[in-house]
């Protein structure tokens, strides 16, 4: 890490966030809303990506999405908390805490058993949420009007303010995730997939590394959940259903896992795809979605993000610029 060369990913994240903030005024409301949904999903997917880097397939990201969303909805309803920034911080802390607690137990699991146990826990929570009237049952809970940094915006202003909050929360969380992945711990995580035993011999605790990654994944999932909840102003148990978590993993598959930017790209691609399919084929949108998914998996198995990497590599080759290996963040994973 040097001070002279700014980290490209962080620069890109900042530019994107600034660009989106300025552009926000010209984007139609419904596209802003879809973007907010995509950003929320992207954060949860980023959590799934962190775990996937450790070779762990999680079908339980929905649990943290749920935890984040319901922390916000319940705090709003029962604690009278209505400040968006506080709700976001609180929700991230709670979901991170939940992940820390479950992590003690789940960091022993690998492979398909990790996937299935995360799925089982998430579905248990789904079942409880459907039954418990405190949680609003299957109808879920509505979140009324919230204030943002003390300002009580209404109508379109609130939507715009919420959009900006989403952009910057997501930007900050993505930076945190990026710094984590770049750190020593982040590199250890990647080594886990290759060979755990070797890592243990090197004196690293695989369990606590996985535990740390799991807490980060939980916090990211919670951040996604609270943003989704505040944008939609409605939460329901479907957040914890296994297909929600499946979507998050699929976003990572769609985009590849080259950088923390990938899930954002994947989430937008999926949301555009879904909107396109639903708008044009109301009777067969699943089929259209499935077909495009299949084509992507078959023909761009490294993820759509790989197209950018390939383009970037071509540009670099043409410009004959020598890129130092340390700066080349976006190397495709084997």
């Amino acid at each position: 890490m040097t001070l002279r060369k700014p980290d490209t990913t962080i620069v890109v994240l900042l530019l994107l966030a600034i660009g989106a903030s300025i552009g926000a005024w010209w984007i139609p409301g419904w596209i802003r809303f879809i973007s907010q949904m995509a950003i929320s999903a992207a954060l949860a997917s980023l959590g799934a990506m962190v775990l996937l880097r450790a070779g762990l397939l999680s079908f339980g990201q929905g649990l943290f999405y749920f935890a984040g969303a319901y922390t916000a909805a319940l705090s709003y309803k029962y604690l009278g908390l209505n400040e968006a920034v506080l709700l976001i911080l609180f929700s991230i802390a709670i979901s991170g805490g939940v992940a820390a607690a479950i992590g003690f137990f789940i960091s022993n699991y690998r492979g398909i058993f990790f996937a299935m146990l995360t799925l089982a826990i998430s579905m248990l929570v789904y079942g409880i949420a459907v039954k418990v009237s405190l949680f609003g049952g299957s109808d879920g809970l509505n979140i009324g009007l919230i204030s943002i940094l003390g300002f009580r915006y209404r109508g379109p202003d609130l939507q715009l303010a919420m959009f900006l909050i989403c952009i910057w929360t997501a930007g900050l969380m993505a930076m945190v995730a990026h710094l984590f992945l770049r750190s020593r711990l982040g590199k250890v995580i990647e080594a886990i997939e290759d060979n755990e035993v070797r890592l243990e011999y090197l004196g690293t605790s695989v369990r606590s590394s996985i535990h740390a990654a799991y807490v980060l994944a939980g916090a990211l999932g919670g951040a996604g959940g609270v943003l989704a909840a505040l944008s939609a102003r409605h939460v329901d148990p479907g957040f914890a259903y296994w297909t929600t978590a499946g979507d998050f993993v699929f976003i990572v598959i769609l985009s590849g896992q080259a950088s923390v930017l990938s899930p954002f790209f994947g989430a937008f691609a999926l949301e555009v795809l879904r909107t396109f399919a639903a708008a044009n084929f109301p009777d067969a949108w699943q089929m259209v979605l499935g077909t495009i998914m299949l084509l992507i998996v078959l023909f761009v198995p490294k993820g759509l993000g790989h197209i950018f990497i390939a383009l970037g590599a071509r540009w670099k080759a043409r410009g004959r610029t020598v890129v130092p290996a340390a700066m080349n963040e976006e190397t495709a994973r084997p």
Partner: peptide, 22 residues
């Protein structure tokens, strides 16, 4: 204009806004 209600509340909110604004 026809739309499918399946897919969960999040999708429906997005669809509703699309119907109205788009």
């Amino acid at each position: 204009v026809w739309a499918d209600e399946a897919g969960g509340t999040q999708k429906q909110l997005a669809e509703y806004r699309r119907l109205v604004e788009r």
